[in-house]
Structure formats: structure tokens, C-alpha cells
């Protein structure tokens, strides 16, 4: 979970999750990821899996450890669609790949 630095551009693809090369087998079993959170729920970011690039891309939109996220749209019946979340009252569309790297806890 450490935000390891791997060059200005590098890093992201070598992480875990959709599109990455690694496996997600060492995911803690009970922690939900943002990608699976149903619409209408509010969550707090516990940590973010993946490299420096994924971390900073998300961070630049305000999705960091401790941030509050409201899931506005997540059609689990249509698992190819992006999910839509609200952070700092800005709506953000997130691809499922990157959303599955955000480990969260429910706050309400």
C-alpha cells in the first residue's frame, strides 16, 4: 500500500488490478473496494493499491487516504460502465479498473 515512487511517468501498469500485471491475491479479504460499492452509499478511502501514477492521478481529483466519497452511480448489473462518484462536490467518472484499486470503508 506504500505509495512507492517509480519515475515521473512509470509505475501504474505494474501495480495490481485490471490491466496490471500482478495479481490481487494479497488483497485483504474483507475490505470492500470502491468498484463494488453500490450507488447511494458514502465511503471513506482506507488506502489505494497500485503505483505512484495511479495514486497521484486519483489524488489530483481529491481521492486520497481519508477522503470521503459518495457513490452516485454504480450499475453492478452493467459491469462495463464507469462508476460515478462525488468527491469535494465534484462529480467524477472512474473506470472500473482504477476504482477497484481504491480500498474503502463504509461510513453510513
Amino acid at each position: 500500500m506504500k505509495g512507492t515512487y517509480s519515475g515521473f511517468w512509470g509505475g501504474y501498469g505494474r501495480g495490481r488490478g485490471w490491466g496490471g500485471k500482478g495479481s490481487s491475491s494479497n488483497l485483504p479479504p474483507n475490505d470492500p473496494v470502491l468498484e463494488r460499492v453500490p450507488a447511494g452509499r458514502k465511503v471513506r478511502v482506507k488506502y489505494i493499491l497500485g503505483g505512484w501514477n495511479a495514486n497521484s492521478r486519483l489524488a489530483s481529483m481529491g481521492i486520497v487516504q481519508g477522503a470521503e466519497i459518495e457513490v452516485l452511480k454504480n450499475d453492478l448489473n452493467y459491469p462495463w460502465t464507469p462508476i460515478i462518484v462525488k468527491v469535494n462536490s465534484v462529480e467524477i467518472a472512474l473506470g472500473r479498473g482504477i476504482a477497484s484499486r481504491v480500498v474503502v470503508e463504509y461510513i453510513e
Binding site: G7, F8, W9, G10, Y12, G13, W18, G19, N53, A54, R57, L58, M61, P82, I84, V90, E91, I92, A93, L94, G95, G97, I98
Partner: peptide, 19 residues
């Protein structure tokens, strides 16, 4: 261009939806 320009295999979608 992966090494040279740091291009990712899949560009992840992180997109602001302005009002």
C-alpha cells in the same frame, strides 16, 4: 512508447464531469 514516454497500456478513466 511505454519506456520512452511512459505511456500506459490502458489509460485509466479518471474524468471530471463538470455540471
Amino acid at each position: 512508447f511505454r519506456e520512452k514516454l511512459g505511456v500506459e497500456r490502458r489509460t485509466p478513466l479518471v474524468l471530471e464531469l463538470p455540471y
